[in-house]
């Protein structure tokens, strides 16, 4: 009994691992396919539920040259914007698995799994399946951000699928601790200055604790017509020093006198 209770406690403490599903054609299809260069292909792939696409897997019977893999959003029944793509890689015989550096979040519906091969002698596997695929004549290059419009349809799909991580089925397994709260107090100060009527582009108001930072430090830009400015979020009860300059055509005047005060 004690062992059973310990086992139950152990199981309850384990994280709920996210499940995953395969989208696309994960079986090795019966017919050989070659002559796919210089074509960019994308096959229609249903997404049964929202999930995060982790990797792409493409089956090659006889490898030749290099490949790009990627996934496009579905836009009105056609491939649209590129959601993720792999860097170029040299294909090998069997399943070519490529993990996506930035796994895209997919919504339930459909996407288009795309590939581009550099060599038309590479042999892959395909069959007439699903809603088929589309193809465009395009020189071998990284996948474009948007799938080209000049497409022609195929009835076939290749052995090509993605692993998609589905959301956890249980809420977070432990509540956060009671929050600790630490308040910091801030004040607001208002500054005013005189200036003649000489045309200028504006002022720079420098405010800082210890030193105003004038010139060259962080500052607030103030329009030329203004003669007051309010600075917020200043540390409470800390002496602030302020100086101001006038600016015209990229040239800055000398710093004014220092005005000091505390927001308290």
């Amino acid at each position: 009994m004690r062992i059973l209770l310990a086992l139950a406690a152990l199981l309850a403490s384990l994280p709920a691992s996210a499940a995953s599903i395969n989208i696309g054609q994960s079986q090795i299809l019966p017919d050989n396919s070659s002559g796919e260069s210089p074509y960019l292909n994308a096959q229609h792939t249903p997404v049964p539920q929202a999930c995060r696409l982790l990797d792409l897997n493409f089956y090659v019977a006889t490898p030749r040259g290099q490949m790009y893999l990627g996934v496009y959003a579905n836009a009105g029944g056609k491939p649209g914007a590129l959601l993720a793509a792999t860097p170029i890689f040299t294909s090998v015989a069997g399943w070519n698995k490529r993990t996506l550096a930035a796994p895209p979040q997919l919504q339930a519906g459909a996407v288009w799994l795309a590939f581009h091969v550099s060599n038309g002698n590479q042999v892959m596997r395909w069959a007439a399946l699903g809603q088929g695929s589309v193809s465009v004549n395009r020189a071998f290059a990284p996948l474009p951000a948007n799938f080209p419009a000049q497409q022609f349809p195929y009835a076939f799909q290749w052995s090509y699928y993605g692993t998609c991580e589905t959301p956890p089925s249980v809420p977070p397994n432990a509540a956060p601790g009671a929050p600790a709260i630490q308040f910091a107090k801030f004040g607001t100060m208002r500054f005013a200055w005189d200036y003649g009527s000489e045309p200028i582009d504006g002022f720079r108001l420098y405010v800082g604790a210890g030193s105003s930072g004038c010139p060259g430090g962080p500052h607030m830009a103030v329009p030329a017509a203004q003669r007051t400015a309010t600075v917020t979020h200043l540390a409470w009860d800390v002496t602030q020093r302020a100086q101001i300059t006038a600016v015209r055509g990229g040239s800055e005047s000398g710093c004014s006198n220092v005005a000091a005060g505390k927001p308290n």
Partner: peptide, 17 residues
């Protein structure tokens, strides 16, 4: 440029970490 004395402190505000 003559920066005048601080015209007056305003109300405090707080941040909570």
């Amino acid at each position: 440029l003559s920066l005048l004395a601080v015209a007056g402190a305003q109300a405090a505000s707080f941040d909570a970490a």
